[in-house]
Simulated assay, not measured.
Amino acid sequence: MIKKRWKFIFRISVLLLLIIISWQGIVEAAPAFDIPNISLDINSANNSQDLALPLQIMLLLTVLSLAPAILIMVTSFVRIAVVLSLIRRALATRRMPPNQIIIGLAIFLTIFVMAPVWGQIYDDAVQPYLNDEINQIQAYEQGIKPLRGFMFEQTREKDIALFVDLGKIERPKNQTEIPTYILIPAFVISELRIAFQIGFIIYLPFIVIDMIVASTLMSMGMMMLPPVMISLPFKILLFVLVDGWYLVIKSLIKTF
């Protein structure tokens, strides 16, 4: 066994040596080419434009790092993810469906709901900017309008008034005077309110099943048996018979 292993190692070494020799011959025979020299220097700025470019790069990296949180908070993801999580809790199936499936389904439903808004952003802001028809500021102003319109449709005036009072700004006369940093938190708490309202309605039939099972077990004197073990199959059966996922997703999408 030892001789066979050494023979194998010797053959591999010879093969590697031949590859190295042939590679050196290829490199020597290849024509010379220029290798780019990359250097990072920190020098004093001669004008405001020299200073603006590094700041833009830093701002872009900051926005990219916060992009997931921004996309979550200004889209329909909050409502969808909360409702799907409440369904799992109402069924009492613990980790079924897993978090990966819940989040993945919420992401694709969010893409479905937000597709018209993102399409309008692309047509009004991204495409003109790529064609050098507008500058960055104009692209931002054109791109934020469809998103603000979506958030205004889903946000209560009461929630907007709350953050206007907390921010101690003048009372806006119309929607255009409401800053985006006021609109986003108001939109989030409005989404949470609607999500918990939907969750309450979903919880009701499952609570009834739990009460019936618990009272039945108590009347039979089986107080040591956990009611969840008996009610769980009935919850799943009821959810399947009424085609629960179809009804929940349909009703949830129609709320937007």
Rank of each mutant, 00 (worst) to 15 (best):
D243W: 15
I87D: 04
I72E: 04
D34Y: 12
N46S: 11
Y129I: 04
L18Q: 10
F77Y: 10
L59V: 04
V14Q: 08
S231I: 12
I57V: 12
A186N: 01
D165G: 10
I236V: 09
F8N: 11
A30T: 11
L18T: 13
I198M: 15
L16K: 12
P54R: 01
A90W: 01
S22W: 13
L237M: 13
S190R: 05
P36S: 08
V126Y: 14
S44A: 10
I230Q: 02
I103A: 13
K3H: 08
I144P: 00
V208S: 04
I178C: 03
I12K: 11
Q154D: 04
Q197T: 07
M223G: 04
A45E: 00
D165H: 10
L66D: 01
F200I: 10
K168V: 11
L91H: 01
Y181M: 09
I212A: 07
I198H: 10
N99T: 07
M224W: 07
M211R: 12
L238K: 02
Y181H: 14
A81W: 13
I19D: 05
Y181N: 07
L147H: 01
I38T: 06
L17P: 05
P185Q: 04
A52H: 02
S22L: 11
N37V: 13
E177F: 10
Y129L: 14
V240S: 07
K4L: 09
L71V: 05
L109H: 02
I2V: 11
A69C: 05
R94I: 06
A67H: 00
Y122S: 08
R79W: 14
M211C: 02
I160N: 03
S13N: 07
L55M: 03
P146E: 04
T216L: 09
A67P: 00
N135Q: 09
N174K: 12
P116E: 10
L241E: 06
M223I: 11
L71M: 11
D123Q: 15
T255W: 14
A161N: 09
F256G: 03
L59N: 05
L204P: 05
I253C: 08
G199A: 10
T176P: 02
A90L: 08
I194T: 09
G149I: 08
T93F: 02
T110A: 02
D41T: 09
I57H: 00
S215C: 06
